Structures are given as structure tokens and as C-alpha cells.
Amino acid sequence: MSRVLVLYYSTYGHIETMANAVAEGARGTGATVDIKRVPETAPAEVAKNAHFKLDQQAPEARVDELESYDAIIIGAPTRYGRMPSQMASFLDQTGGLWARGALNGKVGGAFTSTATQHGGQETTLFSIITNLLHFGMTVVGLPYSFQGQMTMDEIVGCSPYGASTIAGGKGERRPSQLELDGARHQGELIAKTANKLFG
């Protein structure tokens, strides 16, 4: 079976929760799944004063590890409609992998979180997906096989470009069951695709 990396950055824990759901979906296919986070680049005092969630269990990833995976699923919250600098800084260090074509043909996907329904979920997903395409990866989103994203009965994240959650302006809202189901569904689809290609 394939090896899958769920690579994330989470400021307040919403993306950390989504990452665990993505990994759960991927593991259900028999794939070997690791969850790792990118390093925090904000000064320690800033992170502490802004109440960042600094006690996350996932180990920090290294750039040189990426090529050992068959699929990489990247999650990050939005910053003004794009990925945050922490994730961008990590991906900016992958020039050597790109130059060697080390990620060509691998499978990738993206997931995100925003404070509001219209806070840039899709543009943030595309800011991640752009990197995956430059790496030569095959991108798998969250198709309408996940019908939950069509609901009008509750506020919900998710789009065909990737799973997502809405955190609230003060981070008070946690990922809903439906949003977690979307994350699991996307993780499952990506791992199934990787299993077919590399399993």
C-alpha cells in the first residue's frame, strides 16, 4: 500500500483536528499515514500572546522527507485568502526537490479553515494546489461524491477543491461532524488514488 503524509500548519488547533480526520480517512484504505506539522516561525512571545496552540502532538516535518511519500495532503488556515507564511516558508525550501522532479507523479490535495464562510477558503486551497501542480503532482479534491457539502441545513465548509472548516472570528467554532466527514472522505480518496498508482 501507499505511504501518505498529512502535512499541516495549525494556529489554534482547527487544522490539527482536520488533519487527524484526513489521516483517519486515508488509513481506512490500508495506506501507511504519517501526520507532521511545519515549524512555527512566529516569534515565541507573539505566539504566546496571541494564544497559539503550541502543544500539538505531531512531530515537525523536514523538507527532505517529502520525496519518501506517495501522497502529500497539505492543510493550512487562511491568511487573507492565501496560505500562511509558516507553510509558505516550508514549501519555499523545496526548490531542490522541484529541480530534481522528486515529487513528479505523486498525489496531492489541500484542506483549510477560515474564520467566516467568505473568508477565502477556495483561494487558500488554490494557493496550496498551485504548489502541488508546480511539483508535478496529481491533485485530488473533494468531489461531490461527498454530498455533505451541498447541505443548506447548517453552516458548513468544504468545496470541490478540498475539505475545510469555519472557525469563527475568535476561533470559537470547532470543526463540525459534517466537515470532519468531508476531511475523512478526501483523505480516503487521495489514499485510494495513491494505492492504485503505488500500492
Rank of each mutant, 00 (worst) to 15 (best):
37 R>P: 13
55 D>W: 08
69 Y>K: 04
34 D>Y: 05
46 V>F: 14
142 L>T: 02
40 E>C: 13
110 A>P: 07
113 S>I: 06
86 Q>P: 06
6 V>K: 03
188 E>G: 13
57 Q>T: 09
157 G>T: 09
91 L>G: 01
51 H>S: 08
99 A>V: 09
42 A>T: 05
69 Y>A: 09
123 T>Q: 10
62 R>E: 04
3 R>M: 05
123 T>C: 07
1 M>N: 07
120 G>M: 03
94 T>Q: 05
64 D>G: 01
28 G>A: 11
89 S>R: 05
182 G>C: 08
145 S>E: 07
48 K>N: 14
106 K>E: 11
154 E>P: 12
119 G>R: 06
62 R>V: 00
188 E>Y: 15
183 A>R: 13
165 T>D: 08
140 V>I: 15
164 S>C: 10
185 H>G: 04
179 E>I: 07
134 H>E: 09
51 H>N: 08
41 T>F: 02
166 I>L: 11
11 T>C: 15
106 K>M: 04
154 E>I: 14
78 T>R: 04
5 L>N: 03
186 Q>V: 14
164 S>L: 06
107 V>Y: 07
25 G>V: 06
100 R>A: 14
50 A>Y: 13
68 S>W: 02
25 G>D: 02
100 R>Q: 12
3 R>V: 01
188 E>C: 15
17 T>G: 09
43 P>I: 00
112 T>R: 06
150 M>Q: 03
174 R>H: 08
26 A>P: 14
135 F>L: 04
71 A>Y: 02
196 K>I: 12
18 M>Y: 12
24 E>R: 11
47 A>N: 04
37 R>T: 14
96 G>V: 11
123 T>N: 07
156 V>S: 11
175 P>T: 05
127 S>W: 10
92 D>G: 12
73 I>R: 10
11 T>W: 15
42 A>R: 05
102 A>D: 09
180 L>G: 02
104 N>L: 09
58 A>W: 02
74 I>S: 04
128 I>H: 06
132 L>I: 05
129 I>H: 04
169 G>Y: 05
174 R>S: 14
137 M>Q: 01
26 A>I: 11
79 R>S: 13
53 K>H: 15
89 S>I: 00
132 L>V: 08
112 T>G: 11
145 S>K: 06
87 M>K: 10
62 R>T: 00
74 I>W: 05
168 G>T: 00
52 F>R: 15
57 Q>M: 10
85 S>N: 15
135 F>N: 01
192 K>T: 10
93 Q>N: 03
161 Y>N: 07
136 G>H: 05
70 D>Y: 02
137 M>S: 00
89 S>P: 00
197 L>V: 09
49 N>W: 13
37 R>N: 14
141 G>W: 03
122 E>F: 06
82 R>L: 14
89 S>W: 02
146 F>K: 03
75 G>H: 13
69 Y>E: 04
73 I>Y: 10
118 H>K: 12
20 N>Y: 12
38 V>Y: 01
114 T>N: 02
83 M>K: 11
117 Q>S: 09
114 T>D: 01
